[in-house]
Write a protein that binds this DNA or RNA. Structure first.
Lengths: 339, 339
DNA sequence: TTGTATGCGTTATCAA
DNA sequence: TTGATAACGCATACAA
């Protein structure tokens, strides 16, 4: 059916190994036969079989992306396409294929990863999240399988190459920003506490409050999914408090956006009645009404660097673990005002 | 290094073929040995090697997605993540992996596809575009390789399974919509004419004008990329005409959004001075100012159906070619008004 | 510089 | 019900 190395060999009147060497551009093959074989390859439309090759090389020239969740949910948030843009850039340059996980639950994803790795489907993985006690991470460490992480590892931080923002300081800066505007009732809307990004930013938030002698109020802390619905839930909760916050730190632009609808229904105006600062600087943060004051975390770079490090690691297993901190910037728009 | 079928065989005191049969759940193996082998597999942490298996099966349980362009560009438009959401849903259900193309130019993408196909990296492909004289399409037809298309094939329409909107009627409906509002100077901003979606909608637009006895004005037709910049270019061009259009049909929400900035600079108000109706009903069309009147083309379904058909085709090569038309709906918001 | 033989991990065929 | 053997397509050690 498909044309193999043998077909080429036969027609070129050489042995299969010679053809194989021509493909690998082995220097010990005469220029003449190289040419001849190449012509036959073209003629026959020969292309090497990846699976056969991988079987020997133990390399498939592919990297896998592990999402925190089902693609279905995750791709609702423009954060992920944007990381993938960065990843894809280097994958393409280095001629690696990209495989994406599709599992829906944590367990499904774990099993998928195990199959990918053990089955030899990928040479390395990028984890697009960092979670406490993550089975996937533990498995990969255990197997000594090459991977990098967007975010900060829960444990073995120094042994795992990862690309992250300084989320502690980001959380702090953002809170300081609101404090400077005169706010004292500042709410914090994060993702799950099992996500390290939440933990770090929350710590920054707490420390900023403490430094300003603002008492910490547990009721002001809410955790929800990084989706519009998450923002809606969060704001409902916070705005039903007897003492409403006057400003909010929100972990994601999409959540902030979700809040807008709910707040409108409640006749609460942003920023007049409630200041909101969020994270990610997605396109939508620029076009929303009001435009969001947000933290640009440089998503593209996050992906780009993670992919770059991964491929380095794959090509050279001795490559030491790295930590890369991508800088963030507060983009001031119109969702915050003085208290 | 990795544990193979032979290791399991040895420890379970059976032959490798028996182990293989246990994996395949072959009925001719006694329940007893099946259990024994399974225990050993667990013990050793055995997982089948995908590449070896594919070598024989000629099936890799993976589908490839071919983007019209570099991931870098394409993922700026939320259309694609949304199609992928639909695709991913069925891929996951059927246990297929997803590979995405990363090529930047048409030629690079073509070569990538050839390598994917000939190299046996995927069992089938989904083309996320439809283009005139597309090398990729021709190659796949020629090779009789399973693929489906989101969009309408340029040629061999009946022989290629594809999922599309009725873009002719969509273009017509949208133009009628503007005509009913009293507009006569209606501009059309599409993507490249090599994209069939543009061609179809343009025909609908023209026919609607003709039916309403509105003269067709060539100057009112502009073609740009499906990006914000594309919208900006287009609107600059159209608004520099001596006789400006009073309404625009725009091929994509993101383009429409791009127009907003430029129009603001020009002190042209939407919809007061210019009505805009666009396509796709992306999230951003809902939050933009003003919210966009747009056509919901049901992107998720487009992807979902394309994936479903592809996998059917892979599992049964006899499966006849299908055409699936996903319905569209005009979502009226506030970017259009009467003339 | 080139060819032969062997093996990668699995499945399928044939025998037992 | 199970085992031995060949084959999938390619790469490499060893020979020539």
């Amino acid at each position: 059916m498909t044309v193999t190395i043998k077909d080429v060999a036969k027609l070129a009147k050489v042995s299969p190994s010679t053809v194989s060497r021509v493909i690998a551009d082995n220097p010990r093959i005469s220029h003449k036969t190289k040419e001849r074989v190449k012509i036959v390859m073209d003629e026959l439309g020969y292309h090497p079989n990846f699976n056969a090759r991988s079987l020997i090389n133990k390399s498939v020239q592919a990297i896998g992306l592990v999402l925190p969740n089902s693609t279905e949910k995750v791709f609702q948030n423009p954060f992920f396409p944007e990381v993938i843009r960065g990843i894809s850039k280097v994958a393409h340059d280095k001629e690696y294929a990209i495989l994406i996980s599709t599992g829906e639950t944590e367990d499904q994803i774990y099993n998928e990863v195990v199959r990918m790795v053990q089955g030899g489907r990928v040479d390395g993985l990028i984890l697009l999240y960092s979670r406490v006690n993550d089975k996937v991470t533990n498995f990969l460490i255990d197997r000594k399988f090459p991977f990098t992480m967007v975010g900060k590892p829960h444990v073995n931080t120094d042994a795992i190459t990862h690309v992250d923002n300084d989320n502690y300081n980001a959380g702090k800066s953002v809170t300081d920003f609101l404090l400077k505007l005169g706010h004292r009732q500042i709410g914090f809307v994060g993702g799950s506490l099992s996500l390290l990004v939440t933990v770090d930013r929350l710590r920054g938030y707490e420390d900023a409050l403490a430094a300003a002698d603002v008492p910490f109020n547990k009721e002001y802390i809410v955790h929800e999914e990084f989706l519009r619905e998450g923002g809606q839930e969060a704001v409902k909760e916070l705005m039903s408090l007897k003492k409403r916050p006057s400003a909010l730190v929100v972990a994601d632009d999409l959540m902030a956006l979700g809040m807008f609808n709910t707040l409108a229904e409640m006749k609460i105006k942003v920023p007049d009645h409630l200041s909101i600062i969020s994270f990610n600087n997605l396109l939508l943060s620029e076009i929303s009404r009001p435009p969001l004051t947000t933290v640009d975390v440089n998503i593209y770079q996050l992906g780009f660097q993670a992919a770059k490090c991964l491929i380095e690691k794959i090509m050279n297993p001795q490559e030491p673990a790295k930590r890369i901190i991508v800088p963030f910037t507060i983009i001031e728009r119109n969702s915050c005002t003085t208290k």
